[in-house]
Design a protein around this nucleic acid. Structure first.
Length: 273
DNA sequence: AGGTTTACCTGTGAGC
DNA sequence: TGCTCACA
DNA sequence: GTAAACC
């Protein structure tokens, strides 16, 4: 599940490989549903041909390809998507749903086991993005802002609060659990009940776990792969995620798992209160 | 309105 | 081993 | 992971 650090890794790897290249075609390889939204694959092919990639940016978990002529190709990998940079003659990648051809005899393969990922071509990038808050690794993400947002919630658990993209764009299930462990906060606590000192710890923890994720090129529990098809290594450094029943590294207590907002949530019942 | 559940799709792994 | 179910 | 449906 690509979250902020995984998407950031993809964007950084893609820039030297794809910026300056021109699209020579688009092809959907599987029957509907294809990743393409709001138009047919044929329309996307026609619209993409001849457009140069001016820049590649990340916003939350979205990838933004700024193209010549003012259009933006917006990709979202959802749960199991990957963007592989290959040559047409390279071995096939499993679950490749679409191929974007470039003018240097390479291609971007959009692989996606569960088919939740999306691709859309828009004039204004913001129209393809959901309701997004500030970038948690950017200067606008402050403890004060986090506290203000937490105060607007009533009963929602802080875990669900963190998963809301309008709070900190790019946070996902893994890094939310890890941030709450690092901040020693029980994920079941109501967001509005957090004390100032706790929010300050949480703010720092969010930054720390995301930065560590980027440094380790992301988490690969199952499907995540970078543009070369390689795994990240951050899964070796997680404290609680998918460690149900295993001893906490800090106190030795068994990690517990509960369901919060429909998502599995992992925490140490002794360290997090 | 905020919060929670469900739908979208396909595969893996655990338990019986 | 094969089937079902929870989970991602 | 996200958006729509449902309390």
């Amino acid at each position: 599940m690509p979250e902020l650090p995984e998407v950031e890794t993809i964007v950084r790897d893609l820039r030297p490989r794809a910026v300056g290249r021109t699209f020579t075609g688009f092809q959907a390889l599987t029957a509907a549903p294809t990743p393409v939204r709001d138009m047919t694959p044929e329309q996307l092919d026609a619209a993409l041909r001849g457009r140069r990639i001016e820049s590649i940016e990340r916003r939350g978990k979205y990838l933004l390809f700024a193209l010549s002529g003012g259009l933006t190709l917006v990709a979202h990998l959802r749960m199991t998507g990957a963007l592989l940079h290959r040559r047409p003659t390279d071995d096939a990648d499993a679950y490749t749903r679409a191929v974007l051809s470039l003018d240097d005899d390479t291609e971007l393969r959009f692989a996606d086991l569960r088919r939740f990922g999306t691709l859309r071509l828009v004039e204004d990038a913001t129209q393809a993005l959901g309701r997004l808050g500030v970038e948690p690794l950017g200067p606008e993400f402050t403890a004060e802002r986090l506290a203000r947002l937490a105060g607007t919630r009533t009963s929602a658990p802080v875990k669900s609060f963190l998963m809301d993209q309008a709070v900190a764009a790019g946070m996902g299930n893994i890094y939310a659990d890890e941030a709450l462990f690092a901040a020693r906060i029980d994920p079941r606590r109501a967001a509005a009940s957090l004390k100032k000192a706790e929010l300050k710890r949480l703010h720092g923890a969010i930054r720390a776990v995301l930065e560590q994720g980027v440094a380790n090129r992301g988490v690969s529990f199952r499907n995540y792969r970078d543009v070369a098809g390689n795994s990240g290594s951050n899964q070796y450094f997680v404290a609680v995620f998918r460690r149900t029943g295993q001893p906490c590294d800090v106190c030795g207590m068994a990690i517990e798992r509960v369901k919060l907002g429909g998502r599995s949530t992992h925490f140490c019942p002794r360290c997090q209160r």
